[in-house]
Design a protein around this nucleic acid. Structure first.
Lengths: 103, 103
DNA sequence: ATATTTAGTTACGAAATGTAACAAACGAAG
DNA sequence: CTTCGTTTGTTACATTTCGTAACTAAATAT
């Protein structure tokens, strides 16, 4: 590991987005608030990891968590302003992937 | 790509960018071709992982690898067109990080 | 023969991830 | 009262990936 002079904000942001599943979860939530089971149904992620990622994203203030005491319980996750601000990033990734990624 | 389903190209692209170090390496190489030791000096990544990532990125056709039989040997990595096409993505991430990320 | 330099590779312990079974909560069904 | 169904997690454990440090290969200069 060498010494590094890199924009610390960019580096930290990249580390957040570069964590497995985080980008896909944000992209999911850009279409609106969703409950745990909805996110889980739309992504090939396990419940354990989804819980873990959402907790981290809550700590980073990317999402908020709301519990509705219904039966059965409903828990909804919604992007914060900081999270929604990632829309242009996701849009650029979409454009790039559409043009360059082979499935 | 429809709005109602997860786009496979986006998912694969996100998995590539979402791999640890990949984004930072691409960002480094956006400033021009660089040799192994230069990338390693500028990022807090170990030689082992850098080798691994560069190999993967070569397979994904994000970078090319050129060996110069000098003494000692020089190995340069350069972004392909596909790799350079990620510049707008990196720019948006920079903008977001600058505004929202606390170091 | 030994030292120097770059670009890796290897061995091994630590951390992250994936899988599947289980738990809490609470009303509904029997 | 007991069991079932449903969501949102949690726990235990196996697998994979990562980080660190020592080591190798190749070519030349001393």
């Amino acid at each position: 590991m060498g010494n590094f002079q890199l924009c610390p904000k960019f580096e930290k942001g990249m580390q957040m987005l570069g964590k497995r599943w985080t980008g896909l979860i944000i992209n999911q939530l850009l279409s609106g608030p969703q409950r745990f089971s909805e996110i889980k149904a739309d992504l090939p992620i396990s419940g354990k990891l989804l819980t873990e990622r959402l907790k981290e994203m809550e700590e980073e203030e990317l999402v908020t968590r709301k519990v509705y005491a219904e039966v059965p319980v409903r828990v909804e996750y919604e992007l914060t302003e900081k999270g929604r601000a990632l829309q242009p990033v996701m849009k650029e990734i979409s454009k790039w992937a559409e043009e360059w990624v082979e499935v």
